[in-house]
Every structure is written in C-alpha cells, then in structure tokens.
Design a protein around this nucleic acid. Sequence first.
RNA 1: GUCCUAGUAGCUCAGUUGGAUAGAGCAACAGCCUUCUAAGCUGUGGGUCGGGGGUUCGAAUCCCUCCUGGGACGCCA
Length: 615
Amino acid sequence: MLERFWGPCKVPESASEQDSTLWGYFITLRKESTPPMNIKQQLAEHLAGQLDGIDSDTLAGLLEYPPNPEMGDVSLPCFKLSKQLRQAPNKIAEQLAERMPSHPLVLKAQAVNGYLNVFLEFTAFTRELVQEILTTADRYGSSTVGEGKTIVVDYSSPNIAKPFHIGHLRSTVIGNALLRIFSYMGYKCVGVNHLGDWGTQFGKLISAYLRWGSEEAVRQDGIEELLRLYVKFHDEAEREPALEDEARAWFAKLEQGNEQASQIWREFIDISLKEFDRVYDLLGVQFDSIRGESFYNDKTASVIEQLREKQLLEEDEGAHIVRLDAYDMPPAIMLKKDGSSLYHTRDAAAAIYRKNTYDFDKCIYVTDYAQNLHFQQWFKVIELMGYEWGSNLVHVPFGRVSLEGVRMATRKGNVIKLDDLLRQAIEKTLEIIEAKNPQMEGKEEVARQVGVGAVIFSDLSSNRIKDIVFTWEEALNFDGETGPYVQYTHARACSVLRKAGGGERLAIGGANAADAAGTATVAAELLNDDVSQLVMKQLAMFPEKVTQAMEKYEPSIVSRYLIDLAQSFNRFYHDCPILVDDAKLRSARLALVESVRITMSNGLRLIGLETPERI
RNA sequence: GUCCUAGUAGCUCAGUUGGAUAGAGCAACAGCCUUCUAAGCUGUGGGUCGGGGGUUCGAAUCCCUCCUGGGACGCCA
C-alpha cells in the first residue's frame, strides 16, 4: 500500500509564493515497512535470545558506539555479562558472533577482545532510517512517553525594576529548552514565570520615586529610570540613614494594602513587564503563567498552620524554624521574628498552589546553583508536611555568569544588558549578510533569527553547571561551534533542496523495490560511502540524544549533537556533489539532505532557535 | 570551620550508570571557491585528564587525601 503526502509538511512562513512550490518534493513511501528505527533496541532484542537470563533492556543499556569504524557500528562489551554467565568475556563475544542468527540490519559480527562488534548492513539501515525520518518529519525524535503527564517548569523569573541582564538569560533559555524537550516527549508542559515583585526593596523604590522621580521620567526611561532611583536611594541613605526607616514604612504600607503604595508598585510592574516582554518576544519565549511572589503572600499562613499541626515548627531566638538535622541540613527558617514570611515559606506555598492547580507529575525549578541548599531544604519541608509529591520537585541548577571573572552587580553598573547583547549580535549578523549575501530578501528578519540564535546557542552549548565568563569577543564569534554555524548548515541543506527544483520525485525504497507507481526509487546502496554513512549514523542517534537531554535536564546534549551533525553533513556537502546528472545518485543524496534538514530543524527548535532557510 | 560544586590541549569545552588509540572548536601555521551558500572543508602542531594514594582484567570516570577556583551555611531572594 502506498501512502503519499507532501513533504516537508511545513511550508516556510517566510518563503515567497514561488519558493513554496519549490518545496513540493513528492515523496513516496512504504508506510508499513517503517517500524521505529532504534538500532540498539533491535539488536538487543535480537541478541537477548542467545543469552540465558539476560533481557533485552539490559543489553540495550550495555550497547555502545565504538570509537572508530574498524570496530564496527555498534558493539557489546561482554565484561559485565561475564560474572552472571560465569564465562570469560571473549568467550561470550565469540559465541555470540558465531551463533547469532541473521538479521536484516546486520552484515556481520566479530568478537574482539571481549567485545562483540556488530557491522551494520548499510543499505537496509539507510533505507529504514531515511524512511522513518521522512515519514515522521517534524516529529522525528519525538516520543509519547510523557503522554498524560504534566510538567511545570519555573524559569526566567527576573526581578521587577531591575534590568534584564545576561545573568537572567541562562534560566530563560535553559527553561525554555527543557519545556520544548519535555513537550516533544509527550508531556503537557506549563511554563511559569515567578517574578520577583515583593520585598523591602520596593519600599526603597517607592520612597525614592516620591522624592526624586516622576511619572513622565519612568514612562520615558522605564527600568533605566527605576534603577537610577534605586541607586540614588542607596547613595542618599548612606548620608541620611533615616531614609531606610522611611523605606521600611513604605513597604509596610504596601503590605497593608495602602492605595498609593500599591498603585506605584503596580506601575513598576507594568513598566518592567513591558520591557521583559520585548526581550521574551525576541527570544521567542512564552509563559503559561506569570505571577509574582506577591501572589503567594496570603497563602503562606496555611503553610505555617500545617507545619504547626504536624509539630514541625520550633521557636528559636524568636524565629520559627523547621529542624533538618536528620537530613544533614541546617534548619529552614519559615518565619522571621517579626512574624513575616521568608522565601522558603513562599516557595512552599507556591508549590502547593501549583500542585492543586496543575496536578503536576514534576515541578522543575531552573535557577543558579547558589540556591542549591535553599531548594533542598524546602523540598524536604514539603515532604515532612506529608506531601508525598515532595520528591517530584526538581531543582535544575546552572553556573553563574561573570564579566572577565568579576561578578556582575546591578547596583555597581557592571552588567551587560541582554537588550544590548542581542542588539549587537543582530547588528553584526546584518553586517555579515551585507558582505556575503546582500541581495537576499528579508535580511533584517534573518539577522534577528541568527543573531538571537547565536546568543541562545552559546548559553546552551556547554554543560549548564559550568560557570561562564562573558566576553564580547566570544559572544559575537560566529565561527566554529556556534548557533550560526548550525543554522548556516541548515540553510545550506535548504538551499540545495531548493535548487533541486520543485516536483522532483523522491521515492525511498530498496535497490530492487520497484515502485507501484513506476517512480524511480532512491537507491540506498548509493549512500554506502564512508562520509554518507557517518551522516546516517549521526542521524540515527537523534532520538536517544533527545531522551538523554530530557533525563538529565541538559539541553546542551542537543546543542552538542547539532554541532556533530552539522560537522558530518558539511563534510558530506564538501565531498559529495549532490545535484549530479545521475538521477538515482541525485535522488539518494537528496534524500539524505532532506533527512538532515528535518533532523537539524527539529533539534534547533528544541533548544529554542529559529530555522531560517536562507542566511 | 562545615557542606556542595568545578578542575581535561595556550583558551572555551565534549567525553563520567568504569571499557578499545582521551575528542571538538577557538587561536597559530599550511592548503581548498570557473561546480550545490567559504558563517564552510582539509591538513599540521599542541595532553603528568589539578597532585598523590587506592579499588580491578581495565580509571578522565569510583573511593580516600591534599591543592586551586566558585558557591552555600538562620531572620535578602
């Protein structure tokens, strides 16, 4: 049975009318012959029958990719099996090599030094893989493991009235990537922005605003003006300590619902959100819920009450604490001696509210690692309160950003505002485009996509726990392992596909699989050269990379993967001419290019980058 | 002081549920655009995996210890 559809399914938004016709590759597939393509899984199941008491899942976990091609394509180290089977590793490998029944995807298997090295039957492997990628298209690499489950991701969470600087970027882009990855794995995701909109600093701001500020100035300069007022307050307060009391009084009024204080405070929030929204728009980040800490003010009392009931609360030097000695942690202060709540209390209240509202299976907090202890403490408090879902709270910490090794401090003014960084990145991209591709349409839009992509990608390209030392030179470098490099490679693939012309029929089949419609079939065996094979193996790894990224809450796994894929594709692009006269070879290579284009586009979107088709 | 975390090429980093010869990029140098986008590709040089012990068939990966950087440790978040 033949199934036909147009691919790629998505007609690019930016493409002009005539462009979209070029995208109409007519792809003919045999749908019934595309089981999910997972080499490790298939091999594990195949091997499981040969070994007593070892199931396929264990085997799949043991399988690995050998460091070089002479050692095969997938291999099974038999050392761990030797204990259970009471045989020498090389014996096990040899027996497996000899006795293994034939499998369509396996060319041969060799025993080497305790490893069973499996060489793939590349024609079959390539055919199946390409079929799967072209069939699943923008869902290639996705999964349904999360179906019916909900994940709440708390990320970004900037402070009101403070500039959004590059330190806030990490939480935003990591959280956004995790949200997309979990969604891709079938989870229902709720993105939450937990604004820092409460605390004594708002008393200071109100005080400063009334003394030296004006509505016009704030309207005009936004957060810049609020920052100026905040800094001025601190300067003045050094000379006149009475200002601190005034600020405390204003915060007290704000807490009591004083009309004037509340109105000014709301104004600060509006101003700030307006600026944040501009940044979020640029970054392509959206939230399902934006609430400040203030929202949970009236919900902390219930937390305290429950702690009392459970006899967890203890008075100490006037403050109320929960002892955590049994868990090797210092006590968590839940109430100050003046009776007001702290962030432990508010975070706990927020978690309970979210559990009631979203009934999450997991709630993830993306913050820098300075808050490690804080989260461990209140997670434990939630558990002690009797909420068994306390163990489903996850802190995802990341490293800190500094400037040339010096810590950023808003009040000292040594911060890089994200706005400035993005603007410079976009500007530089535009310059490069003017120099290399001046006749391109929609230059501004592409510059935005690539400039912003460069910034996001560089934040996601290394392990999130690593500290980052910011330098302009590095931030604006677009060569090598960067976002622009991956996007450029993607655009290259798009360009070849475009040049191939519309209406070309790409039929994916085996060498002998004559198509019922009489279409020329893509001959997978023409992709058996080393360079093409490397690309195919790389493509096959995408699904497990996405899974790993999810399990480890580590978007950089996807970023690194995209670099690897781009590298192997660029080698292919360089070594193998695609638009050749030989129709069969041309179709085969185009099928590879289309597979790369799909996979790269999926990966880029997962980490929050856009996928321009021309750069 | 206690606890957490990081330390891999000159620089930035991959690689850590223990596996085969530790890999990329940047920078440096040498090549490749009359051919599908040179933001690209190829090659060269570059390593006591912080030091020292240990565990074992095997350690960058696990354990102990020391050194260095970062962080947290009761009324900020």
